[in-house]
């Protein structure tokens, strides 16, 4: 099967990449915010205010990464179905065409 005979890659793949980038950026930004708060650790107002949104933002980053993983697995599932279908449709013909060749 040549490249142009393949169906287009699932849209979930590109969404997965975008979500993974967003997730990494969110997690990194929480690290930067944490380091900047630590530079002025005695400012209770700034510390409390930042800590209130820092943990949820870090979890949002992790959630974006996990959603990216889920979408990637969804793409794998779609590709697996394609592979299974291709094997089901073409494997008998291949075996009959080359009966002397064993798939080893």
């Amino acid at each position: 099967m040549t490249q142009h005979q393949l169906p287009p890659e699932p849209r979930a793949s590109s969404m997965s990449t975008a979500l993974a980038v967003i997730g990494v950026m969110l997690v990194m930004s929480t690290l930067v915010a944490g380091v900047s708060v630590s530079a002025d650790a005695l400012d209770i107002r700034e510390g409390s205010r930042t800590m209130a949104w820092l943990l949820p933002t870090a979890f949002a980053g992790i959630a974006a990464l996990l959603t990216a993983v889920i979408l990637r697995f969804d793409s794998i599932l779609a590709s697996l179905g394609l592979r299974m279908g291709a094997m089901r449709d073409h494997l008998p013909a291949l075996i009959n065409t080359h009966p002397e060749r064993h798939l080893t």
Binding site: I44, R45, S48, R49, T50, M51, A52, W53, L54, L55, P56, T57, F59, A60, A63, L66, T67, I70
Partner: peptide
């Protein structure tokens, strides 16, 4: 399951931001 997870995290993020405004009011 995935949709519920995303909604719970989004709700947590909103709660965190609201909590940050309360902290800002109080600790000032």
């Amino acid at each position: 399951m995935t949709a519920m997870g995303v909604m719970v995290i989004a709700a947590g993020l909103v709660l965190g931001i609201v909590s940050a405004t309360h902290a800002n009011d109080y600790f000032g």
